[in-house]
Computed example of a mutant assay.
Amino acid sequence: MVACRGTQAIVTLWGIATLFVTFLLCQPLAFNWDRAIPGGYCGDQLASWKSAGVVNILTDAVVLTLPVYDLSKIQMATYKKVVLIAMFALGIFTTAVGIARLVAIVDVDFGDITSGAT
């Protein structure tokens, strides 16, 4: 229970921090999509996105592994336990998408992020 509450707190706080960084990294906010604004600047967007990706992957892995121990102790037929754990393990696809996203971030052109082209 403590591990669940701790993980919940970490994920919540990290989500709030990522939201703030996303909105405050470029000043003024419109500089994210209009680089012609005089005096506008952005922090290191690539580092911000990479760190968010790494922490998201780590928290996904923690969330995936949390129920396994408790599920293994449930009193039911072994094949049902295996199926139940396998259903929870399908969340590994979320982690795989996070890893693919992190790899793809390297190719992002922050000079014109709204164009969608890499």
Results as ranks from 00 to 15, higher is better:
Met1Val: 05
Val2Arg: 06
Val2Asp: 13
Val2Ser: 10
Val2Ala: 10
Ala3Lys: 02
Cys4Trp: 14
Cys4Asp: 03
Cys4Ser: 06
Cys4Phe: 13
Cys4Gly: 06
Arg5His: 14
Thr7Val: 11
Thr7Asn: 05
Thr7Phe: 15
Gln8Leu: 11
Gln8Pro: 02
Gln8Met: 10
Ala9Lys: 12
Ile10Pro: 05
Ile10Gly: 05
Val11Lys: 06
Val11Asn: 09
Val11Glu: 13
Val11Cys: 10
Thr12Glu: 07
Thr12Ser: 15
Thr12Leu: 11
Trp14Gly: 07
Trp14Arg: 10
Gly15Met: 08
Gly15Trp: 02
Ile16Arg: 08
Ile16Gly: 04
Ile16Asn: 02
Ala17Ser: 04
Thr18Ala: 15
Thr18Ile: 02
Leu19Asp: 08
Phe20Val: 10
Val21Gln: 11
Thr22Tyr: 03
Thr22Ile: 03
Phe23Leu: 15
Phe23Thr: 10
Phe23Asp: 05
Leu25Ser: 09
Leu25Cys: 05
Leu25Ala: 08
Cys26Asn: 05
Cys26Gly: 01
Gln27Ser: 11
Pro28Arg: 08
Leu29Gly: 03
Leu29Ser: 01
Leu29Phe: 15
Phe31Tyr: 15
Asn32Val: 07
Asn32Ser: 05
Trp33Glu: 13
Trp33Ala: 03
Arg35Cys: 12
Ala36Ile: 10
Ile37Ala: 07
Pro38Lys: 11
Pro38His: 04
Pro38Trp: 13
Gly39Ala: 08
Gly40Glu: 06
Gly40His: 09
Cys42Lys: 01
Cys42Ile: 03
Cys42Val: 02
Gly43Glu: 14
Gly43Pro: 08
Gly43Ala: 02
Leu46Tyr: 03
Leu46Arg: 12
Ala47Val: 08
Ser48Trp: 00
Ser48Lys: 01
Ser51Glu: 09
Ala52Pro: 01
Ala52Arg: 11
Gly53Phe: 07
Gly53Glu: 02
Val54Ser: 02
Val54Phe: 06
Val55Gly: 06
Val55Thr: 15
Val55Asn: 04
Asn56Tyr: 03
Ile57Gln: 03
Ile57Phe: 05
Thr59Gly: 04
Asp60Ala: 12
Asp60Ile: 05
Ala61Asn: 06
Val62Met: 13
Val62Trp: 02
Val63Gly: 01
Val63Trp: 12
Val63Thr: 12
Thr65Gly: 04
Pro67Glu: 04
Val68Ile: 15
Val68Gln: 06
Asp70Asn: 13
Lys73Gly: 02
Ile74Asn: 00
Gln75Asp: 15
Gln75Thr: 12
Met76Gln: 06
Met76Ile: 14
Ala77Trp: 14
Ala77Ser: 09
Lys80Asn: 09
Lys81Arg: 15
Val82Phe: 13
Val83Leu: 14
Ala86Glu: 00
Met87Asn: 00
Met87Trp: 00
Phe88Val: 01
Phe88Arg: 02
Ala89Lys: 00
Ala89Met: 03
Leu90His: 00
Leu90Trp: 00
Phe93Glu: 03
Phe93Asn: 05
Thr94Gly: 13
Ala96His: 03
Ala96Val: 15
Gly98Glu: 08
Gly98Met: 06
Ile99Met: 07
Ala100Gly: 03
Leu102Asp: 09
Ala104Lys: 08
Ala104Tyr: 07
Ile105Lys: 01
Asp107Lys: 04
Val108Glu: 10
Val108Phe: 05
Phe110His: 09
Gly111Phe: 13
Asp112Gly: 08
Asp112Lys: 11
Ile113Asn: 08
Thr114His: 09
Ser115Pro: 10
Gly116Pro: 07
Gly116Met: 14
Ala117Cys: 09
Thr118Ser: 15
Thr118Asp: 13
Thr118Asn: 13
Thr118Glu: 14
